[in-house]
Design a protein around this nucleic acid. Structure first.
Length: 270
DNA sequence: AGACGTACCTGACCGC
DNA sequence: TGCGGTCAGGTACGTC
């Protein structure tokens, strides 16, 4: 499933679409999580100016002052192909003047495709209330200390709150808490200063490494060329229930917090 | 207002 | 072989 590193890898894979003109649109009649604000046929004739990313949203800025927003949900894929033969779960595709196609396929339809006036982008209901990018300089000790001081919930759930920091999903928060030696059960507001600092550096380190390795391929993530990522081979706790902790050899435990699996080591994470 | 639970969706997997 | 149940999880929304 795509988290921030996977979206970043896909963004880079789409960069060579810049300068291309959209000539044709395909849209399935299956309902996505949210319906497009503008008629997608307005894409035809537009040129791609820039590919950007905010949180888990891919933002494709167009010459007609509109922005195409793609969200991959749990199972979305974006592929670049020399032809388009519709297969199951293809929900959106556009052809460019050189014959290339960009195809959006999403088995579980947790994702969506939306077209919006670029000037209204910041007010889009999915983008308006987002917290900081984890790799930004603003995501630092003083910011996180302030945010966590208001949170009575456990640290794992708190860090998955998009209003604090974006793009850190279940895999990366599990790995980051293990790396920083912090139990997912700790109250967010009880973390010591040194623990907050360690957690921030772990998150930044792990997300950077995941981007370098091409993202994590579990279930069905692939990049725009259909290649798998490699970060899943670096997991230290995620998905390792009842296996030995790589540091102390005790068993990795699995619990459920806020309806999501948490994996952690009782000995290494306090 | 903050915290928590649930719905959305499909395919893989498991036990009988 | 097949069938029903469970799980995966980002996000919005409903409820207390």
């Amino acid at each position: 499933m795509p988290e921030l590193p996977e979206i970043e890898v896909i963004k880079c894979g789409l960069k060579n679409l810049c300068g291309k003109k959209i000539t044709k649109i395909f849209k399935s009649n299956k309902k996505m999580r949210i319906e497009s604000s503008l008629d997608l046929s307005a894409l035809e004739g537009a040129e791609i100016l820039e590919i950007a990313r905010r949180a888990r949203y891919l933002l494709i800025n167009l010459s007609n002052k509109k922005t195409l927003i793609l969200h991959l949900g749990m199972s979305g894929k974006v592929m670049i192909s020399k032809s388009f033969k519709k297969i199951k779960h293809d929900h959106f595709a556009c052809e460019f003047s050189d014959g290339l196609w960009m195809i959006f396929n999403d088995t579980r339809r947790f994702g969506f495709v939306d077209l919006i006036e670029t000037k209204n982008l910041k007010n889009h209901k999915m983008l308006a209330r987002l917290g900081l990018e984890p790799l930004s300089d603003e995501f630092n000790f003083s910011y996180l200390k302030e945010k966590l001081s208001q949170k009575k919930m456990n640290i794992k759930t708190a860090m998955m709150d998009n209003g604090i920091v974006v793009g850190v999903g279940n895999i990366y928060i599990n790995e980051s808490l293990f790396d920083s030696g912090i139990s997912p059960l700790r109250n967010a507001c009880d973390l010591k200063d040194f623990e907050i600092k360690k957690l921030i550096s772990s998150i930044k380190k792990i997300i950077k490494k995941a981007i370098d390795l091409g993202g994590s391929s579990i279930s069905d993530y692939v990049d725009t060329k259909g290649d798998l990522g490699n970060f899943q081979n670096s997991f230290k706790v995620y998905g390792r229930e009842n296996q030995n902790c790589l540091h102390c050899k005790n068993l990795v435990r699995r619990i459920v917090q806020n309806g999501r699996s948490s994996f952690y080591c009782l000995t290494c994470q306090k």
